[in-house]
Each structure stands twice: as structure tokens, then as C-alpha cells.
Simulated assay, not measured.
Amino acid sequence: MTTETLYPVNGIELCAQTFGDPADPAVLLIHGASASMLWWEPGLCKQLADRGRFVVRYDQRDTGRSTAYPVGEPGYAMSDLAADAVGLLDALGIDRAHVVGLSMSGGTALFLGLDDPSRVASLTFVSTTTGEDGLPPPSESMPRLGTPDFADRAAVEEYVVRSIEAEAAGHFEEASARALVQADQARARDYEASLTNHYAMTFDGPRNGGFGDLTQPVLVVHGDQDPLLPLPHGEAIRDAVPGARLVVLAGMGHGLSAPYWSEFVDALIEHTGEH
């Protein structure tokens, strides 16, 4: 594991960290809305590195130590987040990477696969969606948490911890979730921007089509208890992409909780070893 490093990319700064041997196939991990690199926990990254992958995790704009924008005024689009990923690969000297996009960042992964296909060896979509009409809404069990008082650090911490609990579908560990949120707050340039700005950015679309136009090998990983994006969202990606493979993790909610790391790593190692 390297130390965290700030890289100048597209006129901003992105903070990134790598695990493993740079000579191994690169895996670029892109977490979802509001989530810094810390949400790709070191234990998971080390499992992948120990299996022969060079793992890159990073803070997208408005998360962690990367450039933050005024709250509610991000001034960028999803296409810019995709361009940042390419710029980071350039900064790290990586020609092609196996790209993993989780939740919102499935959209970023889609951009990369369609608009920068030469940089993408394979794609993995975790707990994400095609966004098409007719897919089921979030479960009625999801609580309405409202908006925290951002002047109250403890209230913000509690809000995010409870959000993790709501999405976890029973696989929730209070102490580890709270430690993650506290670490995230401590290193963020602006934690209110982190929790706000990804939802306020422009959600544009790729230039070169949609899921059905992807040419890279595609793996879809989804929990069958996902309360935010129920399983039909993952099934829709599988059905949209010719040759895509769906791995359903029984009992998993939204995101990638620790009890499922081993199954996920096995699937990703197999997927990324074929290309």
C-alpha cells in the first residue's frame, strides 16, 4: 500500500492510493455518490492485491482530499468525472485498467467504456442501474432521513451512519461504520460538499451510445436484498449488455459489505483474468 498522493488532473487535484505491484493488471475502483476512497476499504483492496491485481482507489471531486467545490455549485458533469478517471490513469502511467463502478459511478464506468474504450480492459458494475423507466423504486423499508444540520458535526456523523445502516440490509456493523464516517469527515476538504454536490452535478450521457453498445467484457454484481436499487436494476444491466454475466450475492444490500468481499474478489479475479 502506497501513501496517499495528490495528482494534478484536468485543472484539479485528485487524491489516490495504490495497492500491490504496478506490473500486475490494474483495477480502478470508483465508489458511488458522496463516497471517498475510504469506502473501498483497505482489507478489500489488499485481498485484490494479494491475488495479483494492482489496485487504485481515489477520491473523486468533492470527496476526501480531492478538489472541493462550493456547496450546491459543483460546476461539473458526470462526463468530467469520467475524464478525471482517464487523467488519473495517465498520471499513474496506466494504459488500460479493469474499471469497477459502484452505484452512481456505474454511470462513470459506462462513460469510460463507451467514450474511452481503449483505456478499459473490462467493466464491473456493482449495485448500480441502467436508469431505465419501469425499474422498481427503493424499498418502502428505506427510512426518510431528511437533511442533517451541517453545523453539527455529530448530527452529520449520525446521519451518514444511519444511511449506511438503511442500505446494509442487515449486514451492518455499527462500530466499523462509525469509524469510516469519522475518518471520512476528518480528511474531507468540505464534508457538506461531499454529501451534496454529486447530486447537484449535470448528469449528461456518453457520446457513443448506451449499455448495449459496450464492447468490453462486463460483470454485474448485485445484492438480492438491495433496498435502494433492487435486484431488477442489476438484471437490467445484464440484459442490456451482450454477453454480460450477473453475480447475485445472496443477502447483500446496497454496496459491498465486508461479509461479501471474498465472493466479490473471486468473481472479479476470474473476470479480470480473462483479458
Results as ranks from 00 to 15, higher is better:
102 L>H: 13
9 V>H: 04
176 S>V: 14
191 Y>D: 02
260 Y>P: 02
93 G>Q: 11
208 N>S: 14
54 F>E: 10
256 L>R: 07
92 L>H: 12
179 A>C: 03
21 D>N: 15
158 E>L: 06
137 P>M: 13
119 R>G: 06
201 M>P: 05
153 R>M: 08
90 D>H: 09
232 P>G: 05
8 P>I: 01
210 G>T: 14
142 M>F: 14
47 Q>P: 00
263 E>Y: 00
268 L>T: 00
164 I>Q: 12
29 L>K: 08
179 A>H: 09
203 F>Q: 06
118 S>D: 15
128 T>I: 04
163 S>C: 00
187 R>P: 03
228 L>F: 11
146 G>R: 04
106 G>M: 01
43 G>H: 06
135 L>N: 09
177 A>R: 05
45 C>L: 06
207 R>P: 00
257 S>F: 08
66 S>V: 11
19 F>G: 02
90 D>G: 03
34 S>N: 13
143 P>F: 13
101 G>V: 03
137 P>K: 13
264 F>Q: 04
151 A>C: 02
193 A>P: 06
57 R>P: 10
74 P>D: 09
182 Q>G: 15
8 P>T: 08
249 L>V: 07
274 E>V: 08
115 D>N: 12
11 G>E: 01
231 L>A: 05
54 F>Y: 15
247 V>S: 05
85 A>R: 04
215 T>I: 04
30 I>S: 13
122 S>H: 05
108 T>W: 01
92 L>V: 09
148 P>F: 11
178 R>Q: 08
74 P>F: 12
61 R>Q: 10
41 E>A: 11
168 A>R: 05
92 L>T: 06
9 V>P: 01
216 Q>N: 06
39 W>R: 03
267 A>N: 03
143 P>R: 10
52 G>L: 08
134 G>M: 10
229 L>K: 07
226 D>N: 10
89 L>D: 05
147 T>P: 01
246 L>I: 03
229 L>F: 15
250 A>M: 02
195 L>F: 13
134 G>W: 11
133 D>C: 00
264 F>K: 03
175 A>G: 13
110 L>W: 09
194 S>V: 02
253 G>H: 12
269 I>G: 00
96 R>F: 13
241 V>Q: 06
179 A>G: 06
97 A>V: 03
181 V>S: 08
178 R>F: 12
158 E>V: 00
52 G>P: 01
29 L>N: 07
198 H>K: 02
165 E>I: 00
116 D>A: 15
214 L>F: 13
170 G>Y: 14
120 V>R: 04
46 K>G: 01
31 H>A: 14
204 D>Y: 10
215 T>F: 09
142 M>D: 05
66 S>Y: 13
186 A>V: 01
112 L>Q: 08
10 N>K: 02
100 V>P: 05
124 T>A: 15
16 A>C: 07
